[in-house]
Design a protein around this nucleic acid. Structure first.
Length: 885
DNA sequence: GGACCTCAAGTTTTT
DNA sequence: CTTGAGGTCC
């Protein structure tokens, strides 16, 4: 059955027509020449090379609006793909805003995965699936693989399922089906990788399930094997737009190429310098090869930056210049002035956290010099835009647009004054415009905490900051971390819903069969498995049979019987709520009693979800749990049920949760955000701190070991991404010592620091450190050996010109990039163990004074006066009379 | 089934 | 060092 008519009927949209009828939108205003070209070049392949902060999303959304308003395409004829739901949502909102109405009618604007699900549900039978297939997440995937592995009698300790999952994911990213895995990969997973891959795929089909990688691959397979169908889609999707093209993997590339091969109207947007996901299958090659792949392609560069000051852009350019094989792009800005990028070295990671904490406090209160006379090019642009809009006259209907522009521009202006002024203008209040102007013109002399972020390479670096900020009471939020649907309780609840909706979902059944505890241990579960296998039925059916035949007795048996019955009953309630084919009679079929009638008809899916969680004892389980985090879990379950209200049924919801639901609950409080560099891509902040720029940590040793120069270049792009997040102030720091796995390690400044162009960097010295103020540093005779060297290292007095710095640079130059720096050229001899003696009185930065009671290698056991007995590394204590405080 | 213990590992992460 | 997964013991 062809689905195209249907698609047209229920998804076709008259939005473009309505948009045309609406007031003429000056949507092209405010675009620069390159952006305009990117918007207007509609036919043929286009690569929009958009550097950081160059108005990429603006160009992309305007392009969509342009396609619609010029009647080149209807909303359902545009395929627009993003990687994240957030990006898709933003694009939808912006398009809707520009058209002056919600863009609900853009059915094919979404993530690769959500669009693939949509396609696959339509054509599931072409790859041997039913259209109600389940989408497995990583956890399900691994449990499934574990079963296969243990069935094959393999020691999953030596050969962990997680490893196999990664291998299979990698193959899927590269669009390799089991048959196509190259011989070179045969050694994977103890030479049995392909074998398990094959088994895994078979098992997925049996379960009517797909994993994330399959969503793409199955679509590719369908298109490759069904040219007629593909041709239909060519006619259907007249224009294709792709965001973040540098992040596409091989499967996504093939998918796009197949879909674009008809009309070739594909516009890919990306930045090769921001490709930071190579380790999960992204191929920078895709964007580098674009002109070869799509002949006649037009490349349009967006290079004017509206985000950062000159110094920041120059520093970023200086770093990224170290990479080979770039498409080449140089960011520039009209903005004048601004602070140089700050560079500072610290004694250790804790000191770094302490310093940054203080600095943030200074920014917040306006005590910091850079908080005075803030120079934010983006904010300036914003003021101009507001003024332009005011000149044009405000449309009373544009309140949303107006406010969202105001509030998306940074928190400086998001105070009540601005809100009031905007509302006053929109209400036609005379004089309100001047009021807004004066609010916008008034100098901003502090940073809101929302404007400040700390970007780290690895999440373990966050801890030092959290500890410190907790101590000083600085509000922060950590971005990233486990997603909502990855939480245990959410996954359990989902498994209940899944098992109710599709009783053949064995993985879901396994998950909940003994959660909460029903006295069904390994043995009982094995019996269920066995019965199911012998009869060739699903686990739940197997469980029913096992109970019936008395194979599982006692308390467990009774509980299992109840569970199986409950699932069946809940299932009936679901079906009652969603009548098949809209046949209302089906709801009443076989109804014997009023109670049953009630049960079947008067329960919404939201209520049903509550019933399932209650009657299964799942809610009770957490209520009884006295762990401190169980109230939070119950809270999450409530949130889950509440989220259900936005859906018509459980089924639609399941997909939403596994594919779409994210975790960013907006909270109004002003907080510093802490996140990884990866998580920061696409974001921007007036003040950015980049701590931990030390070789081995950043660039990460592992990256370089595993991927060599390629890895290093990706790390360098990460550095580029980090710097270009900053609008006004960018502070890079490193620590001389860091505790790595409980072991103190001396660190060398990152090679990326050497690549920062000197003229755009200002070297700071931490005040009050080691007895000196700014540049004080006259070494006293009594100072411990460590002190003089640390001063050298931090190039205390005049930064780049200090001998220490020069020597450091000379050394790094000798070494070149690619050679790993191990323990060569220690600047500070931290290993020199001291001449401590037992009983000696010593001082430690953190623990204070104490007496040595034992020694072992370079570790001392010290009985501290306040902190008690601790083992400390000798180099962190000094003889107490040497202390310069 | 749960409390306790041992042992290994320990980047980045979306869907 | 710290966390988490798995195993052991009651």
């Amino acid at each position: 059955m062809s689905t195209f008519d249907e698609m047209d009927a229920f998804e076709g949209a008259s939005l473009s027509a309505r948009a045309m009828a609406a007031r003429p939108t000056p949507y092209m205003d405010g675009l620069n020449a390159a952006q305009r070209e990117a918007v207007e070049t509609l036919d043929g392949p286009v690569l929009m090379l958009a550097g950081a902060g160059t108005g990429k999303t603006k160009a992309l959304t305007t392009r969509i609006v342009h396609l619609l308003t010029t009647n080149r395409a209807r909303t359902n004829e545009i395929l627009a793909v993003t990687f994240t739901n957030k990006a898709a949502r933003e694009m939808k909102e912006r398009v809707g805003r520009m058209l002056g109405q919600p863009a609900e009618g853009m059915p094919w604007l979404g993530t690769f995965h959500s669009i693939c699900v949509k396609l696959l549900r339509r054509h599931a039978e072409l790859v041997g699936l039913k259209s109600n297939f389940t989408i497995l997440d990583t956890d399900d995937q691994i449990r499934l693989l574990k079963q296969l592995i243990s069935a094959a009698g393999i020691d999953d300790k030596r050969w962990p399922a997680r490893m196999l999952a990664n291998i299979i994911d990698d193959w899927k990213n590269r669009a390799l089906t089991p048959a196509k895995v190259p011989a070179g990969d045969a050694a994977a997973y103890n030479h049995r990788g392909t074998e398990f891959y094959d088994q895994y795929q078979t098992r997925l089909k049996e379960l009517n399930a797909v994993d994330f990688g399959d969503l793409l691959l199955h679509c590719v397979e369908i298109f490759q094997n069904n040219p007629d169908l593909l041709a239909q889609y060519h006619r259907w999707f007249r224009y294709i737009l792709v965001d973040e093209y540098q992040d596409t993997n091989v499967a996504q590339y093939l998918w796009l190429r197949l879909l674009a091969s008809g009309h070739k109207n594909i516009c890919c947007v990306g930045d090769d310098d921001q490709s930071i996901y190579g380790w999960r299958g992204a191929e920078v090659g895709n964007i580098l090869r674009f002109e070869k792949d799509f002949s006649g392609a037009k490349v349009i560069r967006l290079e004017q930056n509206y985000r950062s000051t000159k110094h920041i852009l120059s520093a970023a350019s200086g770093v990224i210049r170290g990479n080979e094989g770039r498409l080449g792009k140089e960011l520039w800005t009209e903005a004048e002035g601004g602070e140089k990028v700050r560079l500072i070295g610290h004694w250790d990671g804790e000191e770094e956290a302490r310093w940054i904490g203080e600095k943030i406090d200074d920014l917040k209160t306006g005590r910091a010099p850079e908080a005075k006379n803030r120079n934010n090019p983006r904010s300036l642009g914003f003021v101009q835009e507001i003024e332009r809009l005011i000149k044009q006259g405000l449309d009373p209907g544009s309140e949303d647009e107006y406010l969202s522009r105001v509030f998306s521009t940074g928190q400086v202006y998001s105070d009540l004054k601005v809100r009031n002024a905007v509302n006053a203008i929109l209400q036609g209040n005379p004089g309100a415009e001047n009021m807004l102007k004066s609010v916008l013109a008034s100098p901003v002399d502090r940073f809101s905490l929302n404007e400040v972020t700390i970007l780290v390479r690895a999440s373990h670096q966050m801890r030092a900051f959290e500890d410190r900020f907790l101590t000083i009471g600085l509000p922060y939020r950590v971005i990233g971390g486990p997603r909502f649907y990855e939480r245990l309780e959410i996954r359990d609840a989902m498994a209940y819903f899944r098992v109710v909706i599709s009783p053949e979902d064995d993985l879901a059944f396994e998950r909940i069969v003994n959660t909460p505890k029903r006295g069904l241990g390994d043995k009982a579960q094995q019996t269920i498995q066995m019965v199911a296998r012998e009869n060739g039925v699903s686990l739940i059916e197997g469980a029913r049979l096992a109970v019936e035949e008395g194979l599982i007795k006692g308390k467990g048996g009774a509980a299992l019987r109840r569970l199986v019955e409950n699932i069946a009953r809940w299932g009936q309630m679901t079906r009652a709520v969603i009548p098949n084919d809209g046949d209302e009679d089906a709801v009443l079929e076989g109804v014997q009693s009023f109670e049953e009638f009630q049960a079947r008809t008067e329960v919404s899916h939201v209520e049903l979800a509550e019933i399932i969680l209650d009657e299964s004892g799942y809610t009770a389980m957490w209520q009884a749990d006295k762990n401190p985090d169980s109230p939070g879990r119950l809270e999450n379950l409530k949130e889950l049920v509440k989220a259900l209200e936005n859906f018509d049924n459980l089924q639609g919801f399941l997909e939403h949760v596994s594919l779409v639901m994210d975790n960013d609950k907006q909270d109004a409080e002003q907080k510093v955000s802490i996140m990884t560099l990866h998580a920061a891509k696409g974001l921007e902040f007036p003040a950015v701190f980049l701590p931990g720029w030390e070789d081995g940590l950043f660039p990460s040793q592992r990256s370089m070991d595993e991927s060599g120069l390629k890895g290093l270049e990706e790390e360098r792009r990460l550095a580029y991404v980090g710097i270009t997040r900053a609008e006004e102030v960018c502070t890079i720091s490193f620590a001389g010592n860091r505790r790595v796995f409980g072991q103190w390690q001396s660190q060398l400044p990152s090679r990326f620091i050497d690549e920062l162009p000197e003229e755009h960097v200002e070297v700071l010295t931490p005040p009050g450190l080691y007895g000196g103020g700014y540049g004080a540093a006259a070494p006293s005779a009594a100072e411990p050996p460590v002190r003089s060297t640390i001063e050298e290292r931090m190039s205390n007095a005049d930064g780049y010109n200090s001998p220490g710095w020069k020597r450091m640079q000379a050394r790094t130059a000798e070494r070149g990039y690619s050679k790993p720096r191990k323990s060569d050229s220690q600047i500070i001899d931290l290993t020199a163990t001291s001449s401590f003696t037992i009983g000696e009185r010593v001082f430690h930065q953190k623990f204070g004074y104490g007496a040595i009671i034992g020694m072992e290698g370079d570790k001392l056991e010290v009985d501290f006066e306040k902190a008690g007995t601790k083992k400390v590394v000798a180099r962190f204590v000094s003889a107490s009379d040497d202390i310069p405080f």
